[in-house]
C-alpha cells in the first residue's frame, strides 16, 4: 500500500486527500445536524470521523508542503533543462565547425598529395638541361622557328613548307597518282617524273646563296645582309656540330 502511494504522483495524492476531507467533513456535519434535530446524543462514530478528519487534514498540509517543495525543484529542473539545451547547441556548433575544419583539411591534404605525386612524376621523367639546350640548338639551326639573320621582306624562305614545296614532296606525288596524273597546270609526264618546271622550282636556302641574293630587291643588295658581331663561319660550324651532336644523342637516348 505504501509502495503504491509512493508511486502515485503528488497531485493524485493531494486530490485524493482533498476528496476524503470533503466527504469526512460532510459526514461529520450531517451527523451533527441529524443528532441535533433528533435531540439525541451523538454516537461514538462521530469521534472516529473527527479523528480521521484531523489525520487527513494533517496529511493534506504535509502534501501541500511537499508540493511547494516540488515546485521549487521543478523550477530548478527547468533551468537545468535550459542549460542542457544551451550546451547542446554549443556542442552542435562546435561539431559543425570541426566538420568544416575536417573538410578543409581533407581537401588540403588531398591537393598536397596530388602535388607530391606530380612532383614525383616530374622527378622520374626529368630531362637534363644539356639535352634541352642541344634540342634548342638543333631546332634553331634549321630556321624552323624563326627567320635567318639575313632575312628581308621579299625573301621566299619560310620556316614552314610552301605550297610548291608540299606539291613537290612525296605527299604531293601520292595525291597526283591517285588522280591518274591529271592536273590542270602541269603535264602528266612531268608529274610522273616528280619534277617541276624551272619557273616553279622552289629556291631552298641550302641550295645556293647567290640565288637567294638575286631575289632581293634592287639597290638593297647587301644593305640587309648585316650579320651580328661574332657571327662568322666558325660559329656556324659550331651550331651545325651541336645540332648533329644533339640529333645523335637524342636518337641514342631513345
Amino acid at each position: 500500500m505504501a509502495a503504491a502511494a509512493a508511486d502515485k504522483s503528488t497531485k493524485e495524492r493531494l486530490l485524493s486527500t482533498l476528496d476524503d476531507l470533503e466527504v469526512l467533513s460532510r459526514e461529520l456535519i450531517e451527523m451533527l445536524a441529524l443528532s441535533r434535530s433528533q435531540k439525541l446524543p451523538p454516537p461514538g462514530e462521530d469521534t472516529l470521523i473527527l479523528e480521521l478528519l484531523i489525520q487527513r487534514d494533517k496529511e493534506f498540509q504535509e502534501l501541500m508542503q511537499t508540493a511547494l517543495e516540488q515546485g521549487r525543484v521543478h523550477q530548478e529542473m527547468q533551468s537545468l533543462e535550459k542549460e542542457v539545451e544551451k550546451r547542446d547547441s554549443d556542442i552542435q556548433q562546435l561539431q559543425k565547425q570541426l566538420k568544416e575544419a575536417e573538410h578543409i583539411l581533407a581537401t588540403a591534404v588531398y591537393q598536397a598529395k596530388e602535388k607530391l605525386k606530380s612532383i614525383d612524376k616530374a622527378r622520374k621523367g626529368s630531362i637534363s638541361s644539356k639535352e634541352i639546350i642541344k634540342y634548342a640548338h638543333r631546332i634553331s639551326a634549321s630556321n624552323a622557328v624563326c627567320a635567318p639573320l639575313n632575312w628581308v621582306p621579299g625573301d621566299p624562305r619560310r620556316p614552314y613548307p610552301t605550297d610548291l614545296e608540299m606539291r613537290s614532296g612525296m605527299l604531293g606525288n601520292m595525291s597526283n597518282m591517285s588522280t591518274n596524273g591529271v592536273n590542270g597546270h602541269l603535264p602528266g609526264d612531268a608529274l610522273a617524273a616528280g619534277r617541276l618546271p624551272d619557273v616553279l622550282t622552289p629556291q631552298y636556302p641550302w641550295q645556293s646563296t647567290d640565288v637567294s641574293m638575286g631575289i632581293l630587291p634592287p639597290h638593297h643588295g647587301n644593305d640587309f645582309g648585316l650579320e651580328p658581331p661574332g657571327h662568322n663561319k666558325e660559329n656556324e660550324d659550331d651550331v651545325e656540330a651541336m645540332s648533329t651532336d644533339s640529333s645523335s644523342s637524342s636518337s641514342d637516348s631513345d
Binding site: A6, S9, T10, K11, A67, Q70, G71, V73
Partner: peptide, 14 residues
Amino acid sequence: ISSMPGIDMSPAVQ
C-alpha cells in the same frame, strides 16, 4: 492543486 507545477510525479521520481 491543478495549477501547481512539478507535482505530476512523485518526489522520488522528480
